[in-house]
Design a protein around this nucleic acid. Structure first.
Length: 587
DNA sequence: GCCGTTTTCGGCCCGACTGTTTTCAGTCG
């Protein structure tokens, strides 16, 4: 990977490079703690809200970052200055880079991958597949026919379902499974843990935690669920299945008094758990999925007195912390905040008092203005905005000035019939290629609220895209920049843009940034939101509904906002209408 | 490779399951 030279090397790319170095070191059978040091540093960089290149510009000491020492700091510097890392190049010279693909296969780790290469000369997924089919794998010690089958199945699976599934999609798949399991009489409690409970935007697999006095009947029911395609693992307390959709689901059955500890453990994140365990060790305690225990004074490694674990609160309390919301459990500073009593009171879907981005049949929406208004009123909103597309988006039936004026007449009539809700005349105005807006200034003047978005020329180089966006935000009538990076999760990459610069300028200008709640967008993403708040940006959460039923998607935006640690006060459309008006005032 | 109100050396989170093996390494979460 050669990174683009220049000041805009993204933290994500740097983190990726360090991760690769960790993988390569692991393949070389290096000291596992050295490997971990690279992974830790990668994680620090990835979750950092300030771009590394900016830290360097500002002359800040990189070793301030946790997990970054002298060596790592010099790696980071080299990456920012040259766009590549010599050390990584040296490691890559020792082995074919395609070996890294092997490690991504289920059941194949660095040890096995290394042996495939050394003992069979196999370095690609294709070569491994051929070797397994020809029975050559079973020839090396430690491998048998079963290993061969497993690897072939893994390759199949990997090709079909390489990417993670959207949280909203996972919900649809899991709900009926939960109903199926809850119907088993032995099941006392059942909860989805893992990244699903942390409300991550995409899900790799599903982790279920169940309490049952008698585990076997639960396991049996689980494996007998109609859409189960394959039972990957079947133990007494733990089973793993693959559903017809390709989604892997793990189930752990645990006793009631371990419920909290198990839920905590399987909710993760891994990094959050590691830090909690370290805290436990510092206090002479040990945490497992069964509870919190005193470490045996005799030092035999056995567990001593049990301090609790039936509820998550007990585990946190044992290490001197208040309960932490699952959405925050990423080791991005939430443990330190909890310790200092500075955990944010997270925003809730009930805090929302309006939705400021939705379409109607005037452009590409499927519901009429009247229907959208009635649906918003039914949700208890105090205000809403009708924001159809502008004329540049011809395929959506975008409105020109003449049609927009006609639309205002209709909105005026609907206002008469719905005094219970404020209806703002607005528009989602396209940002044109040169950064100008797709609506005349005199029309912009008359709108209650102006939204701007990128829908075209999404492939511009970073410098040009950034300039284009900044140009649009400078326009004094602009209030909200919608789905800023224009990504579609798993389908379209975010535009190349210096997000940090855009956030800074938006904060200065008083232009609000949208968190688009559509589960395919969730744009801005959590780390950008956290950075936006840090910089004092105004924020709104909108559904971008194209049908009355889409108004319900607001909860996905709330999930994302909670992951960013946002409270109700951080989001303008939780405010009263009067305060909202003042909030949108440009600076 | 990082880190330190016990430490600049000696630590670095914990347990289940599988396959293949006869006591356990590798992988996963």
């Amino acid at each position: 990977m050669i990174l683009e030279r220049g000041s805009d090397v993204e933290n994500r790319e740097i983190a990726q490079c360090l991760e690769e170095v960790a993988d390569l070191l692991e393949l070389r059978d290096e000291n596992p703690f050295r490997v971990r040091a690279y992974r830790n540093a990668a994680r620090t960089v990835e979750t950092l809200t300030t771009p590394i290149h900016r830290m360097i510009q500002e002359g800040r000491e990189l070793t301030e970052l946790s997990g970054v020492g002298k060596e790592m700091a010099s790696h980071l510097r080299e990456l920012v200055e040259t766009g590549s890392l010599t050390f990584r190049g040296q490691l890559l010279a020792e082995m074919p880079p395609t070996i890294l693909d092997l490690v991504r296969l289920p059941g194949v780790g660095p040890k096995k991958a290394h042996r495939f290469w050394k003992e069979l000369g196999v370095a690609t997924v294709e070569a491994l597949e051929a070797a397994a089919q020809e029975g050559r794998l079973a020839g090396i010690p430690g491998f048998g026919a079963k290993s061969e089958q497993k690897i072939l199945a893994g390759i199949q699976d990997f090709r079909q379902h390489g990417s993670r599934v959207l949280l909203a999609e996972a919900e649809r798949l899991v709900e009926p499974l939960l109903a199926h399991l809850r119907a088993v009489p032995q099941v006392e409690l059942l909860e989805v843990a893992g990244s699903y409970r942390r409300r991550k935007e995409t899900i790799g697999d599903i982790d279920l935690v169940a309490v049952a006095a008698d585990a076997p009947p639960v396991m049996e029911a689980f494996r007998a669920y109609p859409t189960v395609r394959e039972v990957a693992m079947a133990g007494e307390t733990r089973s793993s299945v693959v559903l017809g959709s390709g989604l892997q689901v793990d189930l752990r059955v645990i006793p009631r008094d371990s419920y909290g500890a198990a839920l905590l453990y399987f909710t993760g994140s891994k990094e959050h758990n590691v830090k909690l365990r370290r805290r436990a060790v510092e206090r002479g305690l040990t945490i497992s999925e069964y509870g919190v225990f005193e470490v045996d004074a005799a030092g035999t490694g056995g567990a001593g007195r049990r301090l609790g674990g039936s509820e998550e609160e007990e585990v946190y309390r044992a290490v001197g912390l208040p309960w932490i919301a699952p959405e925050l459990r990423e080791d991005r500073g939430e443990i330190e905040a909890a310790e200092a009593g500075r955990l944010p009171r997270l925003i809730d879907v009930d805090d929302m008092r309006g939705d400021l981005h939705m379409h109607s049949t005037w452009s590409d929406g499927k519901s009429t203005i009247e229907e959208m208004v009635a649906a918003c009123a039914a949700r208890g909103y105090d205000y809403m905005a009708i924001t159809d597309h502008s004329k540049a988006l011809a395929m959506t039936g975008g409105l020109d000035a003449a049609r927009l004026r006609k639309q205002w007449k209709e909105i005026e009539e609907v206002r008469g019939r719905h005094p219970e809700i404020r209806i703002l005349c607005s528009m989602e105005v396209d940002i044109l290629g040169d950064g100008s807006l797709d609506l005349e200034d005199e029309m912009l003047e008359e709108l209650d609220l102006v939204l701007v978005s990128l829908h075209s020329r999404l492939d511009l180089p970073a410098a040009q895209q950034t300039e284009r966006v900044l140009q649009a935000l400078e326009h004094p009538r602009v209030n909200v920049f919608c789905h800023p990076t224009a990504r579609l999760i798993n389908r379209r990459k975010p535009v190349e843009m210096d997000v940090d610069t855009v956030l800074r300028r938006a904060a200065e200008l008083g232009v609000a940034l949208e968190l688009n709640a559509n589960p395919m967008r969730l744009d801005l993403k959590d780390t950008h939101l956290a950075r936006a708040r840090e910089l004092g940006c105004k924020l709104v959460i909108n559904t971008d509904a194209h049908h009355t039923k889409h108004l319900e998607l607001m909860r996905h935006g709330i999930d994302q906002a909670r992951r960013a640690g946002l409270g109700a006060a951080d989001v303008l459309n939780t405010w009263s209408f009067t305060k909202l008006r003042e909030g949108f005032a440009r600076t």
